[in-house]
Design a protein around this nucleic acid. Structure first.
Length: 732
DNA sequence: CTAGGGTTAG
């Protein structure tokens, strides 16, 4: 927006200013337009410059060349290139840079090789360009053959290594540079400090700091900025703040760095305060704040800030677009997301891996896997994140075959890829596949992490697989993650579901950090394993000692525990205070628990009253609980009404029929039982089958009550028969 | 040649 205004005033000032100033203004305007991808405006300016005969001024022509190279307008590029009187090294260098940026390495080399005179800029362009593309070895090959060993090329090598995460190599190169007698400058120190921060070794940082002070660079803006990051990486927040406070001049980078410090500590309020107070903001500062809101679970705030940013006239760059698309994915805001997508296509960013991965995520989270796949297929150079996003998208929508097929074709899966598959099978309740993929993962030599363990252990909990669970516990100990919140919770759940409440409790007690799920799992585990008093005690302890708020599931367990220990009045007290104290309206299952509790103890009238007073349809289980209470406490009158109610409900699902038939059976009313079975047959209802299983040598064998499904069923029955005969023989 | 911000799993 600003550049457009600048552009308009430019025409007016032509006459009044001298030519040199005018050209410089045009040049810097072209630069701004290129950076902000306002190519249409740039082309208009180009047309104007042709008209007034200034377009072939060298300085302008190079700016135009860079603009057209950047926007890949090849016709315009060749037009400009023709205008040059042969290729001088500057033009060559521009072309080399562009070729590298487009990933056309051969072209870059060809250009480099055909040059008559390679100056230091050409060498540095190739070295840093190759580094930017991650081709470290090739870059170093040129680095070693570079005849111009000046600060700039040394710094290009060092910073390139840092950008590729090779911090130690960067530091080694820095030492070599010092040895060769070349003096480092501010740019060198900035990169070296970043290398120290990445290396995480405090000693290096301090030595470099000493050198910086000695050479008098400690008040340089860039160096100070990188020092702030170094302090933050080493966990020295106070020191970072001191460096910031002592700076003579601060820029957006300094402010953004210190902003990120507060955000990183989880103090979004202080971060926001700093953000609001920053004397200068640019699109990066906005992006930082937006990204952090999004990552910290405040997507609405992120979106609001994004809108404010646009209104303030800032143009979102790649990072910001990637963040906001991810935010919209979280919010499942398909409409807005599609608008942004259109914008992204318009400015030619749709091939950016960060943006396209977010787009995949957006479409998949909104249930549109086909559109997600289209976004995926249109990425020319996919990275592992692109693949993972698509696989995760399929998992999310239950398309596990597609997910597995795509997963198998990932060129270099990382542990997130594996974890996505493991988690996907878990979410879709294909537990056998959870273990299958997990084993495959181990065979491939991939190291399981916290996420892996928590998923696989949840799988064990779901099928109550004690053997596998214990085995995994061992592995978790080996990896030192057994008391992590996620892993610990999954372990406690697995042990509780397998009936080993001792082990469950011992893991739980040792977890330093417990979240809502951890407490829920343990309270539930105790209640369901018959440790009602302990369950209630733990619930009270949680309220006393933690910040976790009681949830519906915990209250179900609490009521269940009360019901099973006969603490009727206690249970009623919990139940009646659910809304007022715990802020949750009782759901069907809570009513069922209370009805069951009252019925068991013979308070049948109260139970029936409660059922009648419910604001919504009770679960059929609740009627069944009452009926079974009537049976036990011999109340024919209520029993009759309840049975009637239950058979009405039974019209809709089979469980009512089954319960009713069981109750009649236990009362010996066989004609009624047969009548119900007949009704079920007539309506085509089937009892959902029971299932039990045993684990033998790490394999789970299932047995269903209705169908003969096991492949060795005949052999198993033979063996049973044999055992029975032997047992009878012993008895005799 | 340089510092701050970006995507995926749990």
């Amino acid at each position: 927006m600003r550049s457009a205004i600048k552009f308009k005033t430019l025409f007016g000032t032509l006459a009044s200013k001298n030519l040199r100033t005018y050209l410089q203004t045009c040049g810097s305007l072209l630069k701004t337009l290129t950076e902000n991808r306002r190519i249409a405006v740039g082309m208009a300016l180009h047309g104007h410059l042709i008209k007034i005969g200034l377009s072939s001024e060298r300085f302008i022509a190079i700016r135009l060349l860079i603009m057209y190279l950047d926007s890949r307008k090849s016709d315009e590029v060749s037009e400009i290139v023709k205008g040059f009187d042969g290729f001088d090294s500057t033009v060559h260098n521009c072309l080399i840079n562009a070729s590298i940026q487009w990933g056309n390495l051969n072209e870059a080399r060809r250009l480099f090789d055909e040059m008559r005179e390679r100056n230091e800029v050409s060498w540095t362009a190739l070295i840093s360009g190759l580094m930017r593309c991650g081709r470290v070895d090739e870059s170093m090959w040129y680095f070693e053959r570079n005849p111009f060993h000046n600060v700039v090329s040394w710094t290009a090598g060092i910073s390139g290594l840092v950008q590729n995460g090779l911090n130690v190599e960067a530091l080694k190169l820095f030492l070599k540079m010092l040895g060769s007698g070349v003096r480092p400058n501010d740019a060198t120190f900035t990169s070296v400090v970043r290398a120290c921060a990445g290396y995480g070794e405090i000693g290096w940082g301090m030595s470099v700091l000493g050198l910086i002070v000695k050479t008098g660079y400690e008040h340089n803006l860039s160096v100070s900025n990188s020092l702030i990051t170094l302090c933050l990486k080493m966990g020295e927040k106070a020191l970072a703040r001191r460096v910031f406070d002592q700076m003579e001049k601060r820029d957006v980078v300094s402010w953004t760095a210190i902003l990120d410090m507060y955000v990183g500590a989880g103090d979004l309020r202080e971060a926001r305060r700093i953000f609001d107070e920053m004397p200068e903001r640019n699109e990066v500062s906005w992006s930082a704040m937006i990204a952090r809101y999004s990552q910290s679970g405040h997507p609405e705030k992120a979106l609001k800030l994004f809108l404010q940013m646009i209104q303030s006239g800032f143009i979102p760059n790649r990072s910001c677009l990637a963040s906001i698309l991810s935010t919209l994915a979280t919010l499942e805001a398909l409409r807005v997301g599609m608008n942004i997508h259109a914008h992204v296509v318009k400015i030619g960013f749709e091939k950016d891996v960060f943006i396209s991965s977010s787009l995949i995520d957006l479409y998949c989270k909104c249930g549109e896997t086909k559109d997600g796949r289209t976004a995926f297929d249109s990425i020319p150079e996919k990275n592992v994140v692109s693949w993972n996003s698509m696989v995760a998208g399929y998992c999310l929508n239950g398309q596990m075959e597609e997910a597995k097929e795509l997963f198998d074709s990932i060129p270099a899966p990382n542990n997130i890829s594996w974890n996505t598959m493991v988690g996907g099978y878990l979410e879709n309740k294909q537990f056998d596949k959870v273990f299958e993929v997990f084993n495959e993962m181990l065979l491939c030599g991939e190291t399981p992490n916290i996420s892996t363990f928590s998923s696989v252990l949840s799988g064990c909990a779901s099928i109550a697989s004690f053997e596998k669970g214990k085995n995994l516990h061992g592995k978790a100990i080996k990896h030192g993650v057994q008391y992590d919140v996620f892993v610990g919770t999954a372990l406690a759940d697995m042990y509780a579901k397998s009936g080993d409440i001792e082990s469950s409790k011992s893991v739980f007690d040792r977890m330093p950090e417990k979240n809502e799920i951890s407490w829920t799992v343990m309270i539930q585990g105790l209640a369901e394993n018959g440790f009602a008093a302990e369950s209630l005690f733990l619930f009270e302890e949680m309220k006393r000692t933690s910040t976790v708020a009681p949830n519906e599931l915990m209250l179900s367990s609490v009521l269940f525990a009360c019901s099973h220990t006969g603490l009727i009045d206690e249970g009623l007290r919990y139940f009646n205070s659910m809304e007022a104290v715990y802020g949750t309206k009782p759901k069907g299952r809570h009513y069922t628990c209370v009805v069951d509790m009252l019925s068991r103890s013979g308070r049948l009238v109260e139970a029936e009253e409660l059922l009648k007073s419910m604001p919504f349809q009770p679960e059929s289980n609740a009627w069944a609980a009452l009926l079974s209470g009537c049976n036990r406490h011999k109340n024919e009158e209520i029993a009759e009404r309840t049975a009637k109610k239950l058979s009405e409900l039974a019209e809709k699902n089979s469980s009512g029929y089954v319960m009713l038939s069981n109750i009649y059976a236990s009362a010996g009313k066989w004609t009624d039982v047969m009548e119900i079975r007949r009704l079920m047959r007539d309506r085509g209802l089937k009892k959902s089958g029971g299932c039990s299983w045993v684990e033998v040598r790490n394999e789970v064998h299932c047995f269903y009550s209705e169908e003969a499904s096991h492949c060795q069923l005949a052999a198993i029955y033979d063996m049973l028969q044999l055992l029975r005969v032997e047992m009878l023989a012993i008895e005799e």
